[in-house]
Simulated scan of single mutants.
Amino acid sequence: MKRKDAAAVAPTPGMLTVIAALTLSLLLTGCGAVAQASLKSVGIAMRGKPDIAMDADSIAASRFAQIKVTGAEGGAILVLGNIDGQRQAWYSSDQNIVFLQHGLVVATHGGPVELRGMSIHGKNPFADLRGVAPGTTVKRRYDVMPGYRYGMTVSGTLQPLGHERLSILGKTRTLLHVQESLQGSDWSAANHYWVDPGNGLIWKSVQAIAPDTSLEIIQLKPFASDLGK
């Protein structure tokens, strides 16, 4: 990703107005646990606050697609506020944003560490990890702040680890676990993806956004199109 491309992931004023609209909508229509968590706790994964409880019934009743993002010091519920092509922007009420494409973190906004941009050079296997071959390599480029760490080149090696049972909001699913080992430019980390064998959705992942920073992402209420609906 060129530097000008990395800068393009920064939220525009129009994009940030989505946060205000989502917050107002939650105030007007949501009085349950999800609304309270969204208004009070979204973004805490990057603010170092305690974790939050999730209520399956409230999440199911909400009209917003939602994910939970957890950092080293806490978790937060984010809501889907914008779609640009294949890239989704998941918002918190305090203007933190996580950008996903095929379930892959391609940028973040807000927090002590920001992934200004991530690009994959060559074939991108993340559109569907269900049939990924062992040893598949992925060439990445990261632009990270602070420190103006632009142009970090990283190689990822994918390895399917078999199927595992994973419970999300009380529902157990059998998912394909794929590990990605990252090496290069001071990086030595591992990403993990739990993939739905039916539709390819990444229900849960642990993804590095910097050499020393990772986020756990769980789909609580996926966007309908991601479920094949």
Results as ranks from 00 to 15, higher is better:
I19H: 00
I19D: 00
I19W: 00
A20G: 05
A21G: 02
A21T: 09
L22E: 04
L22S: 01
L22W: 03
L22I: 09
T23E: 08
T23S: 08
L24N: 07
L28G: 04
T29D: 11
T29A: 12
C31W: 11
C31D: 10
A33L: 09
A33V: 11
V34L: 11
A35Q: 08
Q36S: 14
Q36D: 12
S38V: 15
S38N: 09
K40C: 05
K40L: 12
S41G: 10
S41C: 09
V42P: 10
G43T: 05
G43C: 07
I44F: 15
A45W: 08
R47M: 10
G48A: 04
G48M: 05
G48L: 00
K49I: 08
K49V: 11
K49E: 14
P50F: 00
A53P: 03
M54A: 13
M54S: 08
D55E: 10
D55M: 04
A56K: 11
A56G: 06
D57Q: 15
D57Y: 10
I59F: 11
A60P: 01
A61H: 10
S62H: 07
S62D: 12
K68G: 10
V69W: 05
T70R: 12
G71L: 05
E73G: 03
E73A: 15
E73D: 14
I77K: 06
L78Q: 04
L78A: 06
L78V: 06
V79N: 08
L80F: 07
L80Y: 06
L80R: 08
G81V: 01
G81H: 06
G81E: 06
N82M: 14
N82W: 14
N82V: 08
I83R: 13
I83W: 06
Q86C: 08
R87F: 08
R87V: 15
R87W: 07
R87M: 14
Q88K: 13
Q88H: 10
W90R: 08
Y91G: 00
Y91Q: 06
Y91C: 09
D94V: 14
D94F: 10
D94N: 15
D94W: 11
N96M: 15
V98M: 01
L100R: 02
L100A: 05
Q101K: 13
H102D: 12
G103Y: 03
V105D: 00
V105W: 01
V106T: 04
T108Y: 05
T108D: 04
T108A: 01
G110N: 01
P112Y: 14
P112I: 10
V113K: 00
V113G: 02
V113A: 00
E114H: 00
